[in-house]
Amino acid sequence: MFRRLDGTAGTTVHLTYEGRPLACREGDSVAAALLAHGHAACRDTVVGGVPRGPYCMMGVCYDCLVTIDGQPNRQACMTRVREGMVVQRQSGPREVAP
């Protein structure tokens, strides 16, 4: 779990993760929001099916991949939270919408 320091400024934003509501701060990346709620893992890998989570927080490791608003393999650390955003954990190779 990552906790928010007292005196951290910002408006609250609500998104859902795996169907459950998550409150976070405007300006957070999706990765920061997930970590703030104790989700260290956000997907299972394509090759070995093992859990992974954010690692570098700067968009170069591609481990923080989640499905955002139906689009798979989005980097959580490079995407800012938005009110009503729907985030889902990924498992294995991505889906392809017909």
Binding site: V46, N73, G92, P93, R94, E95, V96
Partner: peptide, 13 residues
């Protein structure tokens, strides 16, 4: 010359 594009893994289609 031949050029090829590689795409990420997806479920089997």
């Amino acid at each position: 010359r031949g050029q090829i594009i590689a795409l990420e893994r997806t479920r089997r289609l």
